[in-house]
């Protein structure tokens, strides 16, 4: 049961990866990046619970917040880029 949920999650992860590959607009790519950053960290949490491993879970929570911070920094740099 848990494996089936994990596999469907990986399938859901493939959708934004395809989107990031086929779309040429930078903001659409950023949206796909945001989706992937959230989905991978949730997957890390699921794997952590599946294996009952506390350290992986801590890393998953940290990545959940850090990945979004990187996204915001990059978004601001790209916005300044379009201004000039």
């Amino acid at each position: 049961m848990m494996n089936a949920i994990l596999i469907t999650m990986i399938l859901a992860l493939l959708l934004p990866i395809y989107e990031a590959w086929q779309d040429d607009n930078i903001w659409q790519k950023m949206l796909a990046f945001a989706s992937i950053a959230t989905k991978t960290s949730i997957l890390i949490l699921v794997v952590a619970v599946l294996r009952d491993d506390w350290t992986i879970g801590v890393v998953g929570v940290l990545i959940l917040s850090v990945g979004n911070a990187a996204l915001m920094l990059l978004a601001h740099v790209l916005r300044r880029l379009n201004e000039l």
Partner: peptide, 30 residues
């Protein structure tokens, strides 16, 4: 565009490292 894809690669790499139990490597990658 390559920078954004690099972010996606970093997220996937952190997932793979965490999957293999290398929590510290995954955190450093992120």
């Amino acid at each position: 565009h390559a920078l954004v894809i690099r972010g996606i690669l970093g997220a996937v790499a952190a997932l793979v490292y965490a999957l293999f139990g290398a929590a510290d490597v995954a955190l450093t990658e992120a």
